[in-house]
Design a protein around this nucleic acid. Structure first.
Length: 551
RNA sequence: GUGCCCGUAGCUCAAUGGAUAGAGCAUCAGCCUUCUAAGCUGAGGGUUACUGGUUCGAGUCCAGUCGGGCAUACCA
């Protein structure tokens, strides 16, 4: 929207014989009394031009000329800002674009022809998903949605391992519960998985096989059954909040040799060795990260001969590069904070462009129930199961609450608030605005035959009241908000923005009668409502929440 | 000890280095014979943890201090 200001400002600088390396910054002032748009160019240049910023600003204004009917007023204000005030008719005319572009409004071609992979959730199938995983899952899903709006072909990937020690313990845990179920006297080890779901899996086996497996030497059935059941439950849980993955990458494949070729893990060791970053001592194989200024080297192969998690991690990311992705996004929780710097260092050493990797780390989740804070990392009872949260507050509230705070902030999930069917609940505030518009349009269709897809868009420019113009102007920010959210990998920006749109619409609705206005004003206001509904829908789609037509 | 994140209204949180730091909740006062009151209007509430620095300008950047979280495994 503000793009048209840029060339005029640049031309004004030329006319004033000013050449500078500094970029022209155009911003939207927080206070609309300071204009619809504003530039600080005179402040930035005052030093190198040795000019008083206000004087400089005044001269620049003298060199600026805009087409008739666009910028109504320019002024120098404060220490030397140049403020631009747009003509209301110009703003409202621009709102027509939203109607023309419809579902496509807000999208961009910035990522056209490029591919991106977003890795998220990536929980091993050792147990049901916890609330903490849910936050990363929704964050990753929204980031993938955001990238798609920019034209990227996005692959949503889930990385897991069903071959490690944890999975062995899982299988053993099930076996112990099964033996208990068979009436055998066994002592369940404290180090094993305690959750009730283990008993349920054991029950499944008992019902199917009776005690036939109790004496068997074959133990893989316990692990495999557990994996199948748990993975199934994870996928169902994710499905409930609209999360789906395109690909599931099994870490185990990185250990496997193919047609006599070395495994991916072994290949990574070879490559790092060629670069001189591999050392062997104390019986283990080390990534010599001390050469990169780190305090300690990192173990890649344990003295037992097994790779530590770091090696397959590097191999996995190498694989992402081999698959040719232009952008690689990893989403994970704060507990993995130490994991990625080594991976990125290794990829850099191996000659890959590490600027293609973006890492989104989300901080932890606590929940409050009846004002009591419950920390999620303590795994007591079933209170932290994602599935139960979804059942409790619903999929829309689950998703929105996870992303309505910045990912860098600890999230306080107020379960009582999320359940409320009232205005306190931000989910309802947003959805109510949408439902209200739908209801209005239904009524308009019945009473006046208004067609949202019909003609008459040009009438928009006759609207000039403050609630109308403020709403229209805010709607035009949508593409910019998406770009920001993409740049920062931060869907929270979208939540904040949609809240503002809902608020502006409610104000407009309150102050400007729509169906009772004269026919032209009525049509114009209905189209403004249609445009608002479009922005809400497009935003909801990115966030993955539903757009109810009535409430 | 070291690394990363956080510290903003009573509470939960916003604020691409910009102008008088904003929302929601809670508190108080108003608006429905009128298109959804699941809404709107108004009031009170702040030394942005602290101390310095950089700059025309700092909640934001830098250094340090204090507090909280997460990591600092031959676990993943």
């Amino acid at each position: 929207m503000q793009a048209f200001l840029l060339p005029v400002i640049k031309r004004a600088l030329e006319s004033a014989s000013i050449t500078t390396e500094k970029p022209v910054q155009i911003e939207k002032p927080a206070d609309s009394r300071n204009g619809d748009y504003s530039t600080n160019i005179a402040l930035m240049l005052s030093r190198e031009c040795r000019r008083n910023p206000r004087e400089l600003a005044l001269e620049l204004i003298g060199h600026m000329a805009f087409p008739e009917g666009t910028v109504g007023k320019m002024e120098v204000a404060g220490p030397g800002f140049i403020n631009f005030f747009l003509e209301p008719s110009f703003i409202m005319q621009s709102v027509e674009h939203i109607l023309h572009e419809g579902k496509g409004f807000g999208t961009s071609c910035a990522g056209k022809g490029k591919t991106a992979i977003v890795e998220y959730v990536s929980a091993n199938p050792t147990g049901p998903l916890t609330i903490g995983r849910g936050r990363g899952g929704v964050l990753g899903d929204c980031i993938a949605n955001l990238l798609e709006t920019q034209g990227y072909a996005v692959t949503r990937e889930y990385y897991f391992n069903d071959a490690g020690r944890q999975m062995q313990i899982l299988g053993e845990s099930v076996r112990y519960r099964y033996l208990e179920r068979c009436g055998r006297d066994v002592a369940f080890p404290e180090t094993h998985y305690q959750g009730d779901y283990i008993r349920e899996i054991a029950d499944v086996l008992f019902i199917e096989h009776g005690d036939a497996l109790a004496g068997s030497a074959e133990r893989s059935v316990f692990k495999e059954t557990a994996e199948t059941i748990i993975f199934d439950s994870i996928r169902k849980t994710l499905e409930r909040i609209g999360i789906r993955h395109d690909t599931f990458f099994n870490e185990h494949t990185l250990y496997m040799e193919r047609d006599g070729d070395p495994s991916s893990n072994a290949r990574v060791l070879e490559l790092l060795e060629e670069k001189g970053f591999i050392g062997r001592y104390e019986g283990a194989t080390w990534f010599l990260t001390t050469k990169l200024g780190q305090e300690k080297d990192k173990v890649l192969v344990k003295s037992s001969g097994e790779p530590s998690y770091r090696l397959p991690d590097i191999a996995y990311h190498l694989d992402k590069y081999h698959r040719g992705f232009d952008l690689i996004v990893n989403v994970f929780g704060a507990d993995h904070i130490d994991e990625y710097p080594d991976v990125i260092e290794a990829l850099g050493i191996l000659g890959h462009d590490t600027s293609r990797i973006r890492v989104a780390i989300n901080q932890f989740v606590t929940t409050t129930v009846n004002g009591e804070t419950v920390k999620m990392s303590t795994r007591k009872g079933n209170a932290d199961l994602l599935d139960e949260l979804i059942a409790d507050v619903g999929p829309d509230a689950t998703r929105l609450f996870f992303i309505m705070r910045s990912k860098d902030s600890h999230l306080n999930f107020d379960v009582e608030l999320a359940k409320k069917q009232s205005k306190d609940n931000p989910v309802f505030y947003l959805q109510y605005a949408h439902a209200r518009i739908c209801s209005l349009l239904r009524m308009a269709a019945g009473e006046t035959g208004f067609n949202p897809a019909g003609s008459g868009h040009h009438l928009l420019q006759m609207l000039s009241l403050e609630p109308e113009v403020r709403l229209g102007f805010a709607l035009l920010d949508f593409p910019e908000i998406i770009r920001n959210a993409v740049r920062m990998l931060e869907p929270q920006k979208m939540v904040e923005y949609l809240h503002e749109i809902a608020e502006l619409y409610h104000k407009f609705y309150q102050e400007c009668p729509i169906l009772k206005a004269d026919p032209e004003t009525r049509t114009a206001r209905l189209f403004l409502s249609v445009a608002t509904r479009q922005v809400l829908r497009n935003g909801f789609r990115i966030l993955g929440i539903s757009a109810p037509e009535s409430m």
